[in-house]
Design a binder for these strands. Structure first.
Lengths: 345, 345
DNA sequence: ATGAAAGCGCTAACAT
DNA sequence: ATGTTAGCGCTTTCAT
């Protein structure tokens, strides 16, 4: 076939020779630039097609001073993060956008302080990467100020406090407000919540939305009905066990994965869902629909968030940083059986 | 702090000037090469540390003719692949190895024929990438012969027929043999299986191991008890429904995700597990342990496979292709309640 | 042990 | 509209 083993790499110069033009003209054709006469463009294009030439990315990066590579940084890549399809979906969204834009996606998972020590410098020097999407940051993550100081282009997934940071987020507050409100309207009185870890902005926002809904209806807030989890199945299971003595008749769980754990605890305790207790999750992961019982949950558009984050990053990369982009996407309450209401529609 | 915005990029030349040596000497220090006198090395190192210099990857790639970037290609990235934590784990394994080796990991998800058309050339020309790990290939995937023809370094995750291809795989045949054998020893007679898609080598191997176990015990094979799925939860659910009329008393399901679907079908049909039917899965995903009932399953070391694939790739990249590496890892039967045996130990 | 110089393959400013 | 030329920042031979 075409690709023989030791085949010498083609260069612009050689294509030029074959087409009887200079290296510059070939470059113009390759980069779709003007000032090439139609016949010449045609001839050069044919040679390129016949030879299968494609420009060397390293040389191009060096000359252009940009690589076309964007990094997706998972700032705290603990194993439990990969238990559920959240990150895979985010990655899918980013990857799709990258591919259609012709960019290369690089995945950077930081597991430990050592990883951070090793990779933060690489990241902040913005030599290899044109920009970053930062996911799974906790409050106080040193990476973001570092990026800002170094003038690196980036977009955070999940809101961030620094006014200079761009981010893409879902409206966690509104989503959980709606969920809690829904439980109230169904007549539940002792409404508990299992939150995410308190260094996660999403977890804080979800708790905030939940509490607002109760307050807005002048519903008493019982501190014993608020238990902190860490987004893992096990933490949902344990949190539910801690809630049981306080006899909640509803629980808003800040992630579907934790909700699964909660359902497991309830099943083991012989408590019926939704008869004895209503359960609402967050995310609408694939298994929410097939849980026993199917889980009412707050759907968030994860892949879309990834795509938008990439697009915002592109914006930022070629039009400068300011003003920061802040994109907040709506959520949707998906009603299934676990909340005790007949499915709508 | 150090990283001011418009700070001009440092070069070898400038570091040389600061240390009173030539660019070459600095290069030697940066690359830990010999022939630099201790005092000079010391002086240069200090300047590098003080300035925070780090070499430009693009320039380095151009001069070295290698980029330090490896691509992880998901050859058929259908959404259902990302429903379970299989790929995330594989990615984690590869990522860890990459990071500790100082390589950059790039993720390439091919969703469609158009993606393939767009990216196969990029991939096969081996300009941007030093090598690849290829996952989620089906039999007959054109990518692999293409890579072989072009002399690109790569390792496949999952066995591959071409004798020139290197791969890392788990012993799917032995794993399912053990699983089926276990069911036979427990006295089950009508043992069904739900397989993966027939263009997946893993699915074929798992079916093969299952059948061997039955044959070795002279157990009759009832074609009606073999149903094909596609590794998705839904396909497991539907497959189980198709099996029910044939009254199996055991089922070996080729993935935990499908097993979850099977359990759901059984729950809906009011059939008891393991009382009426024993269920064994494959993978040992996190939710296998928390399913109702907890799922007996064949554990495979997914992260480890990713790590080994990367290491094999490194081998290949710097010691040439031949002979191809073939790494096959053992599996382990994890006994829980769904098979009807009291948990060992 | 150190330095000078020739690339690596491309882009882009400049000249024609 | 096309060609010439000067980098981009590094590695690597070759002198010394």
């Amino acid at each position: 076939m075409s690709g023989l083993h030791g085949m010498k790499r083609l260069t612009l110069e050689e294509i030029g020779k074959l087409a009887g033009v200079s290296r510059s003209t070939v470059s113009r054709v390759v980069n779709d630039q003007p000032y090439v006469s139609p016949p010449v463009r045609e001839r050069v294009s044919r040679v390129i097609a016949e030879t299968g030439y494609s420009p060397d990315p390293a040389a191009r990066s060096l000359a252009r001073q940009r690589t076309g590579i964007v990094g997706l940084v998972v700032a705290l890549a603990i194993d439990s993060l990969f238990e559920d399809p959240f990150f895979p979906r985010l990655i899918q969204g980013v990857s799709r956008a990258c591919t259609s834009h012709g960019s290369i996606l690089s995945l950077i998972l930081l597991y430990s302080r050592e990883d951070e020590a090793q990779l933060h410098p690489t990241i902040s020097q913005r030599q290899l990467f044109d920009g970053f999407i930062i996911a799974a940051t906790r409050t106080g993550d040193p990476l973001i100020p570092q990026l800002l100081d170094n003038g690196v282009s980036f977009v955070v997934h999940g809101r961030h406090d620094d006014p200079r940071a761009s981010y893409v987020d879902v409206d966690n507050v509104a989503g959980s407000y709606t969920a809690a409100n829904h439980l109230l309207r169904l007549g539940r009185r002792r409404i508990a919540t299992i939150t995410g870890p308190m260094d996660s902005a999403a977890a804080l926002d979800r708790e905030r939305g939940f509490l607002s809904a109760l307050r807005d209806r002048n519903h008493p807030i019982d501190e014993a009905l608020i238990v902190v989890g860490d987004f893992s199945e096990l933490s949902g299971y344990e949190a539910m066990q801690r809630l049981l003595p306080h006899e909640p008749d509803a629980v808003f769980v800040a992630s579907d994965t934790m909700a699964l754990g909660a359902l497991r605890a309830l099943r083991e305790a012989g408590i019926r869902v939704p008869g004895d207790i209503a359960v609402v999750g967050f995310d609408d992961m694939p298994y929410a629909a097939t849980a026993a019982p199917p889980l009412t949950t707050v759907r968030q558009p994860i892949r879309r968030a990834g795509t938008l984050a990439f697009e915002a990053l592109c914006d930022i990369m070629d039009s400068g940083l300011q003003p920061p982009r802040r994109i907040v996407m709506p959520t949707e309450l998906v009603i299934r059986e676990s909340c005790g209401m007949r499915q709508a529609g």
